[in-house]
């Protein structure tokens, strides 16, 4: 079996994989980083979204071997260095942007990617960006609110 090496959440990670092993399987089964979830099999739901070299990637849509040498960030690597919730995570808690928690890692990773490319997104821009992340619990209202808050746009929430 071929071996793959990458950096995951700042630490080197190596493992044996089959050619057909997906990045999400490598993260969950080999590295035991079970925060990245699998919610569908057609790359629609976004529960497995991670960052690969800073880009938002659905970890179900890429083979582990394709990520050789890359920097991968998962939900487990998002908290502040002291373990406290980062701004986006904290905003999700403050605004009740999650219920069952299953889509949440993908939502947080997606929100982080959005705010990196667009630090002050409008509500419409947030909703458009989240087309690839399905949540069945929240109706998105509080997710949108959390992302607005994380981007420092408390006024947009007050104006609702």
């Amino acid at each position: 079996m071929p071996q793959v090496s990458m950096t995951v959440n700042g630490k080197p990670a190596t493992g044996d994989v089959e050619g057909r092993t997906l990045l999400v399987q490598f993260l969950r089964d080999t590295l035991h980083l079970t925060g990245t979830h699998v919610g569908c099999d057609t790359s629609q739901c976004g529960a497995c979204l991670v960052h690969v070299d800073g880009e938002a990637i659905k970890a179900c849509s890429i083979f582990a071997l394709e990520v050789e040498g890359a920097e991968v960030t998962t939900i487990e690597g998002m908290a502040n260095a002291d373990g406290s919730l980062n701004t986006i995570q904290q905003a999700f808690q403050d605004h009740h942007g999650l219920q069952c928690g299953f889509c949440t890692p993908g939502m947080v990773m997606s929100a982080a990617a959005l705010l990196k490319e667009n630090p002050k997104p409008s509500e419409t821009e947030i909703r458009d960006y989240l087309q690839g992340n399905i949540c069945r619990c929240t109706g998105y209202h509080n997710i949108v609110k959390a992302i607005l808050a994380a981007s420092g746009q408390e006024t947009a929430i007050a104006a609702e």
């Binding site: 079970t34 979830h37 699998v38 939900i75 999700f92 009740h96 299953f102 890692p105």
Partner: peptide, 19 residues
Amino acid sequence: TKRREDVRFLTGDGHYTDD
């Protein structure tokens, strides 16, 4: 009151059956 369970869900520490 903010939800205490959120912390584990937001950090990848949730414990679902597939885990």
